[in-house]
């Protein structure tokens, strides 16, 4: 375990330095300085944000990221969940704990209306996770920008993976729990189906297998693990798990992979980098420069998902576009 741990630390540092340097070089203006000249720096920001999207290629990023995650990936398919819980604490060496997060750039999300398809993030999630019938772990809502303007925007909503999760607090049997790296997981082999967590979730991001889940044979054949939630069990709760096993393997979650517009960034708050599969961002400055917010911040749930406000303008969407997403046409993989 020691060897990959060291690689990870070094790689992380290297990458961080790299990103920081690139940022300084091209921007000339760091997030902290931008307040001095608001107008000028805004212009610079817009330019720079376009520039730093192309600074590190996806290939390079994944190469470094993958190397970093390689060690952990070995441990990713351990059979029991104590491995999940302990994962961040074992290793002996000075190991950096991932803090997985997501940044959702709503400026680029048009709900896949432009493609005339159901939301691709939801679709990718459903198909790859064998999500049981009717559930949308990541759901693309369309909602009003504000009461007066009347325009709308699309709003992909994952489980917010709160740092102060109301759902895990109320679970009577500890079936849902927060892992040290962030994702909130559910042990469907322990869940008693009381649905208290669903009642407690202020984001309505938990789903229930009301009946026997209708899943394809390959899902049924999988060895159960809380990180994959497969196979699904009748009478238990499921939700978006932020694909921690993919993160460890140096891959991005299915929704990120599926998004044609690069709306969703996935990354590590600890290393302060995230990627949407094509570009890398330095999370802190990206959030600061783009007026990021967290959904229902006032509740104190401390979500790990950040939103950049927008209405799909970067994807060429008009705020008054009356078309809704085609999520009603989503298909679920079924067994029979």
């Amino acid at each position: 375990m020691v060897q990959p741990v060291q690689i990870e630390g070094v790689a992380g540092k290297l990458l961080l330095e790299r990103v920081c340097m690139d940022n300084v070089k091209t921007d000339g203006v760091l997030a902290g300085e931008s307040s001095k000249e608001p107008q000028a720096s805004q212009g610079a920001e817009r330019q720079s944000s376009k520039k730093d999207r192309n600074l590190i290629t996806r290939r390079r990023f994944l190469c470094l990221f993958g190397l970093a995650g390689a060690g952990a990936a070995v441990a990713s398919h351990l059979p029991n969940m104590s491995a999940v819980a302990a994962d961040g604490e074992t290793g002996g060496g000075p190991r950096r704990l991932r803090r997985w997060c997501m940044v959702v750039d709503l400026r680029r999300c048009d709900g896949c209306v432009g493609l005339n398809k159901p939301p691709r993030c939801t679709e990718a999630c459903i198909m790859s996770h064998y999500v049981p019938d009717g559930m949308e772990w990541v759901q693309v809502y369309r909602t009003e920008i504000n009461a007066h303007s009347g325009g709308t925007y699309f709003f992909p909503l994952h489980c917010q993976q709160c740092e102060n999760p109301p759902c895990t607090n109320v679970c009577p049997v500890g079936a849902t729990f927060a892992t040290p790296e962030g994702p909130i997981l559910i042990d469907q082999q322990r869940c008693i189906g009381c649905r208290m967590c669903m009642a407690a979730c202020p984001y309505d991001r938990r789903f229930f297998n009301w009946g026997e889940p209708n899943q394809p044979p390959q899902a049924k054949a999988m060895a159960y693990h809380p990180e994959t939630q497969q196979p699904a069990y009748k009478g238990t709760v499921m939700k978006c798990d932020m694909c921690p096993e993919r993160g460890r393997a140096g891959e991005v979650p299915y929704c990120v992979e599926g998004c044609p517009r690069g709306v969703i960034y996935y990354g590590d708050l600890e290393e302060d980098i995230a990627t949407n599969g094509r570009e890398i961002i330095k999370i802190s400055s990206y959030l600061a420069r783009n007026h990021a917010y967290r959904y229902k911040e006032h509740l104190g749930t401390q979500p790990r998902v950040y939103f950049i406000p927008g209405y799909g303008e970067d994807a060429g969407r008009n705020a008054y576009d009356p078309r809704d997403s085609r999520r009603k046409e989503l298909q679920w993989p079924r067994g029979t």
Binding site: P172, V173, G174, A175, R190, C191, I192, G193, C194, R195, F208, N209, W210, Y233, K234, G235, T236
Partner: peptide, 14 residues
Amino acid sequence: DMGRPDRVLNMILY
């Protein structure tokens, strides 16, 4: 009301 009445003992075990 429980989705898994067969696991009611989990309330005591866990």
